[in-house]
Amino acid sequence: NEEPLPEGWEIRYTREGVRYFVDHNTRTTTFKDPRNGKS
């Protein structure tokens, strides 16, 4: 039961299956979860 991502964020996966987060607001990507700060 995960809380929803902030507005404008999306979860994607690399070809290796590593989860990362896309911030469409700033057009950046990060491996850090914007909901809780954990990677």
Rank of each mutant, 00 (worst) to 15 (best):
R27A: 13
E3F: 09
P34F: 01
N36T: 15
W9M: 02
T26A: 06
E7R: 13
R35P: 02
T29S: 11
V18M: 11
G17T: 02
R15C: 15
Y13K: 05
Y20G: 00
P4K: 09
T28C: 15
N25G: 07
W9T: 01
S39R: 10
E2W: 11
T29L: 14
V22W: 12
D23G: 02
R19C: 11
N1R: 12
R12H: 07
V22G: 00
S39E: 14
I11G: 03
N1K: 13
E10R: 05
R35V: 03
G17V: 01
R15N: 10
R12N: 06
K32L: 13
N36Q: 12
N25V: 09
N25M: 08
P34Y: 01
T26V: 03
V22E: 05
E3M: 12
R35M: 02
R19S: 06
P6H: 03
I11M: 14
R19Q: 10
L5R: 01
R19K: 11
E3G: 13
N25L: 09
Y13L: 07
E10M: 06
T29M: 15
V22K: 05
T30K: 03
R35H: 02
E3P: 11
S39P: 15
T14K: 02
W9K: 00
F31K: 07
P34A: 00
S39Q: 14
E16D: 13
N25I: 11
E10K: 05
E3C: 15
N25Q: 08
N36P: 13
W9V: 02
R35C: 03
N36D: 14
R12D: 03
T29Q: 12
R35F: 04
I11T: 07
R12E: 04
T14C: 08
D33I: 01
E7Y: 12
R19H: 06
N36F: 10
F21M: 00
R12V: 07
R35E: 02
T26R: 06
F31I: 08
R27P: 05
T29P: 06
R27C: 15
H24K: 09
V18N: 07
E16G: 14
R15A: 12
D23K: 03
P6E: 04
R12M: 10
T26S: 09
T26M: 06
I11H: 03
T14L: 04
Y13P: 00
E10Q: 08
S39F: 14
P6A: 05
N1S: 13
V22T: 04
Y20H: 02
W9G: 00
P4I: 08
T26N: 09
V22F: 15
K32M: 09
L5N: 02
T14F: 02
H24C: 08
K32D: 15
W9C: 00
G8Y: 05
T29F: 15
N36E: 15
H24T: 10
D33Y: 02
L5W: 04
R19T: 08
Y13C: 06
R12G: 06
P6F: 03
E3I: 12
T14R: 02
R27M: 13
W9E: 00
E10Y: 07
Y13G: 01
K38D: 15
G8K: 04
N25A: 08
I11C: 08
D33S: 01
K32V: 14
F21P: 00
T29D: 05
E7L: 12
D33P: 04
E7T: 12
G8W: 04
T30Q: 08
E7Q: 13
K38M: 15
G37Y: 12
R12F: 09
E16Y: 14
V22M: 09
Y13N: 03
N25Y: 09
R12W: 06
N36M: 11
G17M: 06
T28F: 07
Y13R: 06
N36I: 12
T28A: 06
T14I: 03
R35K: 02
T26D: 04
P6Q: 04
F31G: 05
K38G: 14
D33E: 02
H24E: 05
F21W: 06
P6G: 05
I11Q: 08
E10S: 10
K38P: 15
Y20E: 03
P34W: 01
R15L: 12
R19A: 10
N1D: 14
P4Y: 07
K32A: 10
P34M: 00
H24Y: 09
Y13E: 05
N1F: 13
D33G: 01
R35S: 03
P4Q: 10
T28W: 06
D33L: 01
L5G: 02
E3D: 12
R15S: 12
F21D: 00
V22Q: 05
T14D: 06
K32E: 15
E3R: 10
E16V: 09
N25P: 03
G17P: 00
V18E: 08
E16T: 15
P34I: 01
K38H: 14
R35A: 03
G8Q: 05
R35D: 02
G17N: 08
E7S: 13
F21Q: 00
F21I: 00
F31C: 14
V18S: 07
F21G: 00
T28V: 08
E2M: 10
S39C: 15
Y13I: 07
T29H: 13
Y20T: 02
T26I: 02
R15F: 11
G37H: 12
T28H: 08
E10N: 05
G37I: 11
D33V: 01
E16I: 09
Y20M: 06
G8L: 04
K38S: 14
E3V: 11
R19F: 06
V18I: 14
D33F: 02
T14M: 04
R15Y: 11
D33K: 02
